[in-house]
Design a protein around this nucleic acid. Structure first.
Length: 882
RNA sequence: GCCCGCUUGGCGGAAUCGGUAGACGCAAGGGACUUAAAAUCCCUCGGCUGUAAGGCUGUGCCGGUUCGAGUCCGGCAGCGGGCACCA
């Protein structure tokens, strides 16, 4: 008996798959396609367990779908632009391109060692000009379609690193790298007009039936549609006529029903009126500056007091003659949302109430709970916007909130003072980054002609390689000559745009590029029309909003520019959980790696010093806490199959999984156990039959491997066959529904059953067939999870063709249709016994009832009482009710 | 603050429709084999009770619907996630 050697077997089968180009995907209109994609990795240096989990899941789906006869596309690439490469350049003097490509080479090798069924001929990296050049072309197309524009926007600016920071890179108001206080700066930036599709992006969420409900909800909240009114108030006061807006102030509200409770208006510090006032008044200018410097981080806003400055402007109430309300500039009003101005009704909005209390403004309740008709407002606003009746509101009194809204909308619209409006929280996507390692934005700035797109004949705009990182800021801007280019329109000297794209742009269309990664155009329509959309996309939930929303925008924009037919990129989505591990610290509080500790009799101690170790929380693996396990070590020690098996065992894929040494040992034991099971059974098996035809993309329509089993009458053999076919049915549905942990459990259960059967002496010749059928089924069903081991077992079972080319087994319904033979007997819903029904009979309800009433335990529990009724659930239960 | 999700043995988790709660794995304990170890195999394993057969109890807590509730409904608690001055 030989021991299974994963190292040899994995190399052997990976080489054979590659030699026969099994995973090469070729579009074929005669075959049904299936596009499986995992979120492509950032080439940070080495793969981590999160990658192992992600790519194992994708590979299970890809191999399974392939076995089901689909023409599977399963590609891999690299999200290769981004800041870590520039940081490496600054810290270690390595050029970002070299750093990135070395990382890619390392990680490609690590992924290949996992035995993934990937078509590596389609590999791409977003930092290669063959990729980002096409991105530049699409940018120009989007520009022509009006989907791109430039505007001045406020950004987080790190004055030391001289760069823009994303909100996540601002920690406690300081730059995450430099530690310098972050400033708000107005910069002219490029934007994608994602809001043009706000309604469609929201509505179409309903069509994404194979997306997690949670992700759809998060996107829906992010888009943040609200229905309300734009209302234009007439300004009064000395300066009213001089203000922008023709003497009117427009606000957006969702509570126009509370208009009679208005006691002030407030505008943003960036509102045109505020800017106009600030121009003449240093005090106002100073106040506006303070408001802006607050910035946008949520934690700061939480603590900050509501502040306002009276502009001395007033607005007239549209329905109360002679009544006016003051206009404030307020720090809590955002220019980017709605009209950048609000009307304040303190009784029914908490912020307005806080503000009113601070500045001594009137608080007039205008909505009361339906049954009370009056309400006192102290420190808490009454914000119920569904139930309630209007009070203190003239012609609205007594109406419901909905009726009052309709009245107000009707009157204001008729008067030309407003109209109903839909508003979105979603904002346009700013894509400019002042960085080197990204896709150059293909425009030229000319003093005379303005912003001029780079002519298509001059694309791609290639990143220069001779850049230096010896000073802060964007190396492209410092480059001696790269940015100098003649204006394409007037030929005078002009300047290239030195900003590059946000890396989310690169990852917003790579899935489409995979369909034709070497095409001379961004996408080859014939290929894309065949392969798109992605049938199953798999990745971390941390991308639930931005990446997925941007990609959904991009496919719409690509459709508008003729690059795509589908507007939704991913018809199925699965978001997997993280990989976690215990944390360890020494007495000094320093984090320790798992391999530095030993768990023994005396508790947990340091491997070398023997000093006691504190075991901390189970947290997601991170380098900073050192609770990481390197997949390469695991694969070297146990093999890829064991690692793959472990990361889908026990825990449902959407939940976080804890990596434990004993869990991996358990997975390792099973690989050996399965191999032994096959070897030990070989002597009892009839000869193998290779299937007549081969599945995969070279042939369609495949026969089942397991046909022609002779008739079997032995009970144990029949039970094995039944278990075999039930396992096929269950694992098939488990994989379809991403219940990999259940599929794993069922594989264990079938293996246990086979082991028990195999240990008994064979009843007759048929037993060998049942055993071969069960073993081969076990091997095929294990294939998507542990492909190398399964190939080895398949070969050991005597087959000449590779398992990867064998079709998924079919369920024999005649075997599984036989219902349960054990019927549970209950008294008052509690289990009291069971009935065993012989194979040969089909019991009637009356028979079951009689059997139950005659049962010892039932008689004991009835204790002489007459049953009121007896409920019989066919094939399951008899419940005697007293 | 608003929105969403989760809560089952020592642990990860099973339990399509309301119908045998705890599959499968890990850990633990006992035993076999072995000079020994590794590996492997067998047994036990929610709690209480009983020599045993068995009995009682048990899916976060309180209540309801039902012949029957981990599953459905109402309330509460705890944990986790998303958004957050969004008018």
């Amino acid at each position: 008996m030989s021991r299974y050697n994963p190292k040899e077997a994995e190399q052997k089968w990976q080489a054979r798959w590659e030699a026969e180009q099994v995973f090469l995907a070729v579009a074929d209109a005669s075959r049904e396609k299936y596009y499986v994609l995992e979120m492509f990795p950032y080439p940070s240096g080495r793969i981590h367990m999160g990658h192992v989990r992600n790519y194992t899941m994708g590979d299970i789906v890809a191999r399974y779908k392939r076995a089901r006869g689909f023409n599977v596309l399963h590609p891999m690439g690299w999200d290769a632009f981004g800041m870590p490469a520039e940081n490496a350049a600054r810290e270690r003097g390595v050029h970002p391109a070299i750093w990135t490509h070395e990382n890619i080479a390392t990680m490609r090798g690590q992924l290949k060692a996992m035995g993934l069924s990937i078509d590596w001929s389609r590999e791409l990296a977003t930092c290669d000009v063959e990729y980002y050049g096409h991105e530049q072309q699409m940018f120009l197309d989007f520009m022509e379609q009006g989907l791109v524009y430039r505007k001045e926007a406020s950004v987080n600016w790190d004055p030391v690193d001289e760069t823009v920071l994303a909100n996540e890179q601002v920690i406690d108001g300081r730059g995450w790298r430099s530690g310098a206080p972050v400033e708000q700066r107005q910069l002219t930036q490029w934007f994608f007009r994602i809001t043009a599709y706000a309604e469609d992006l929201l509505q179409s969420l309903d069509t994404l039936e194979r997306w997690p409900e949670k992700v759809r909800l998060m996107q829906s909240n992010w888009i943040g549609r609200s229905e309300g009114m734009r209302i234009r108030f007439t300004l009064s006061g000395e300066q009213a006529a001089a203000m922008p807006g023709d003497g009117r102030l427009e606000v957006y509200t969702t509570r126009h029903d509370t208009l009679f409770g208005m006691s002030f208006c407030a505008i943003s510090a960036d509102h045109p009126i505020a800017l106009a006032l600030a121009a003449d008044d240093p005090a106002i200018a100073e106040f506006c500056r303070q408001c802006r410097d607050l910035g946008g981080t949520a934690e700061v806003l939480e603590r900050v007091e509501k502040l306002g400055l009276d502009t001395r402007l007033k607005v007239r109430h549209p329905f109360i003659a002679g009544r006016e309300a003051p206009v404030f500039i307020a720090n809590f009003v955002l220019m980017a949302y709605g009209a950048g101005a609000i009307f304040g009704c303190p009784a029914h909005d908490q912020r307005d109430l806080d503000f009113a209390r601070k500045y001594g403004l009137e608080v007039l309740p205008v909505v009361a709970p339906a049954d009370t008709l009056s309400i006192d407002i102290v420190n808490e606003a009454y914000t119920d916007n569904l139930n309630g009746r209007l009070i203190n509101s003239d012609f609205l009194n007594g109406l419901t909130i909905a009726q009052a809204k309709a009245q107000i909308a009707g009157r204001l619209t008729a008067a030309g003072a407003g109209e109903q409006a839909v508003n979105f929280r979603l904002r346009d996507w700013g894509v400019s980054r002042q960085r080197y390692w990204g896709c150059p934005i293909p425009v030229i700035h000319c003093a005379d002609c303005g912003v001029v797109p780079v002519p298509r004949s001059q694309l791609p705009v290639v990143l220069p390689t001779d850049v230096s990182f010896d000073r802060p800021g964007n190396p492209l801007a410092h480059h001696p000559d790269w940015k100098h280019a003649p204006c394409p329109r007037c030929a005078k000297p002009a300047l290239r745009e030195t900003d590059t794209f946000d890396t989310f742009v690169d990852s917003s269309w790579y899935f489409a590029r995979f369909c034709s990664p070497r095409a001379a155009t961004p996408v080859d329509r014939r290929e894309a029309d065949y392969w798109m959309p992605v049938d199953q996309y798999i990745g971390g939930v941390e991308h639930a909003i931005l990446h997925l929303l941007y990609s959904r925008f991009f496919t719409r924009a690509m459709k508008a520019t003729g690059y795509a037919v589908e507007k939704e990129p991913f018809s199925g989505l699965f978001t997997q959980g993280m990989v976690t591990h215990e944390t360890y610290r020494d007495a000094g509080g320093a984090w320790l790696f798992p391999e530095q500790i030993v768990k023994g009799e005396g508790g947990v101690v340091h491997r070398e010093t023997g000093a006691p170790v504190q075991v901390g929380k189970i947290e997601s693996m991170s380098k900073s806490k050192r609770n990481v396990v390197d997949p390469e070590h695991i694969i070297a020690h146990y093999g890829a199959d064991t690692a793959r098996w472990f990361v889908v065992s026990d825990t449902p894929p959407e939940r976080d999984i804890e990596w434990t040494e004993s869990g991996v040992e358990g997975a390792w034991r099973f690989t050996q156990r399965m191999w032994r099971l096959v070897e030990d059974s070989l002597a009892k098996l009839p000869p193998p039959k290779d299937p007549a035809r081969v599945s995969g993309f070279k042939a369609a329509g495949i026969p089942a491997v397991l046909a022609d089993v002779p008739e079997i009458t032995d009970d144990a053999a029949l039970a094995l066959r039944k278990a075999t076919h039930e396992t096929i049915r269950n694992i098939t549905s488990d994989i379809e529904r991403f219940h990999f942990n259940r599929a794993v459990a069922r594989i264990y259960a079938l293996a246990n059953h086979i082991a028990a059967f195999s240990a008994q002496p064979a009843a007759d010749a048929g037993a060998g067939y049942a055993l071969r059928e069960a073993l081969e089924t076990l091997v095929i069903l294990t294939g998507p999870f542990m492909p190398h081991l399964a190939e080895a077992c398949w070969e050991a079972l005597g087959h000449k063709i590779m398992l990867v080319n064998v079709e998924w087994p079919a369920v024999d319904d005649t075997l599984t249709r036989v219902e349960s033979r054990t019927i549970i007997i209950q008294v008052n819903g509690k289990r009291r016994g069971e009935l065993n029904i012989p194979h040969t009979m089909t019991p009637t309800q009356d028979y079951l009832k009689a059997q139950a009433l005659a049962h010892d335990a039932v008689i004991r529990h009835l204790d002489g009482r007459k049953p009121k009724t007896v409920i019989v659930v066919p094939d399951r239960i008899v419940n005697v009710v007293v």
